[in-house]
């Protein structure tokens, strides 16, 4: 397979490895974490979204989106003159998005070949050279398309680019280890140490993930692997979970961990893609609690600094 589903390629990514990087977001994820900030990445196929803030209403544009829809009644106008998508009928074909003059309707996800992705990645080579950057494959969960992801990583390495992979590691070791061979810097998420709770929060148990963690240091040196823990209030931010997690990964020989504070940047996307966000009432973890966790974790690790927005 030399092509895959990509939902975004973002140049000048700041927080996904060394230097200036291009972040390739692959579409589709085996998990559905309650706090997911890229909900439009979960489904592997293309997906229609409606960004209400960009819609000016039918009065100004005569709503060309409605007649453009080939499926009767999948798209209709509300009383406010804005489109409403009946998700049970819509097949994400994107004709309405083509008609929209304000890009308020858009389809995320498209099939791209390895060489198409590489052509985009190549564009910033001059910046990688200066900054020691490269390409990062993320998602979604890139290991859902392990062949495609591995081919991308391999193609990048063959072009002497630095590669990074952001993964939840929910994939068989057989596939994972192939990808890891072409990865210079590996980020692995660990969302909860307890399998049952992991399943409740993400939809899947964590045994496969823990198994991969146990093996990965046979291929990579600890300095090239970073464990990432999203800190979600009330979900996995108990002292118990954080210390159990820290102990587990420390014992395996990992030396780097990142605590990633919860944020709500993705909340609006749920409505845009006809999904519901179940953590609505959640408040971000307080600064002092976060500091306690940092202190806790720092006993074991070189705690990586995680910077904020933009």
């Amino acid at each position: 397979m030399s092509s895959g589903q990509v939902f975004n390629i973002q140049r000048y990514s700041m927080h996904d490895g060394e230097g200036i990087r291009t972040l390739v977001f692959l579409k589709g994820c085996p998990l559905a974490c309650l706090w997911c900030s890229n909900p439009e990445s979960q489904q592997i196929g293309p997906q229609l979204g409606f960004i209400e803030s960009k819609c000016t209403g039918s009065e100004s544009c005569n709503a060309p989106c409605v007649p453009a829809c080939p499926v009767n009644a999948a798209l209709y106008l509300t009383e406010q003159g804005k489109p409403c998508i009946d998700r049970t009928l819509c097949d994400d074909c994107g004709r309405c998005a083509e008609a929209c003059p304000h890009d308020a309707l858009k389809v995320v996800g498209r099939e791209m070949s390895v060489s198409e992705v590489m052509a985009e990645v190549e564009k910033d080579r001059i910046f990688y050279r200066r900054s020691g950057g490269g390409v990062t494959i993320g998602g979604g969960e890139p290991m859902l398309q392990y062949d495609f992801a591995t081919q991308l990583l391999r193609a990048a390495q063959e072009e002497y680019l630095h590669t990074a992979l952001e993964t939840c590691a929910l994939v068989s070791w057989e596939h994972f280890n192939k990808a890891v061979q072409y990865t210079d810097l590996l980020y692995i998420d660990l969302k909860h140490i307890d399998s049952q709770k992991h399943k409740a929060l993400t939809g899947q148990p964590n045994e496969v993930i823990l198994n991969n963690l146990r093996q990965v240091l046979s291929l990579k040196s600890a300095q090239d692997v970073v464990i990432r823990v999203p800190v979600i209030p009330g979900c996995n931010d108990s002292v118990d979970n954080i210390s159990q997690t820290a102990k587990f990964v420390a014992k395996l020989g990992f030396t780097q961990i990142e605590l990633m504070p919860y944020h709500k940047m993705g909340v609006a996307k749920y409505a845009q893609y006809g999904m519901t966000y179940s953590l609505d009432e959640l408040q971000a973890t307080g600064e002092s609690e976060l500091q306690d966790m940092r202190d806790l974790v720092e006993r074991f690790f070189d705690l990586k600094e995680v910077s904020g927005l933009y």
Binding site: Q10, M260, V267, A271, G308, L309
Partner: peptide, 25 residues
Amino acid sequence: PEEYKNLVVRVVGYSAFFVELGKAV
């Protein structure tokens, strides 16, 4: 939003354009 559609919000593993975020965010 038309004039500022290039403002990008960058967080770890996340991307969005500012003008596409909900008002609360």
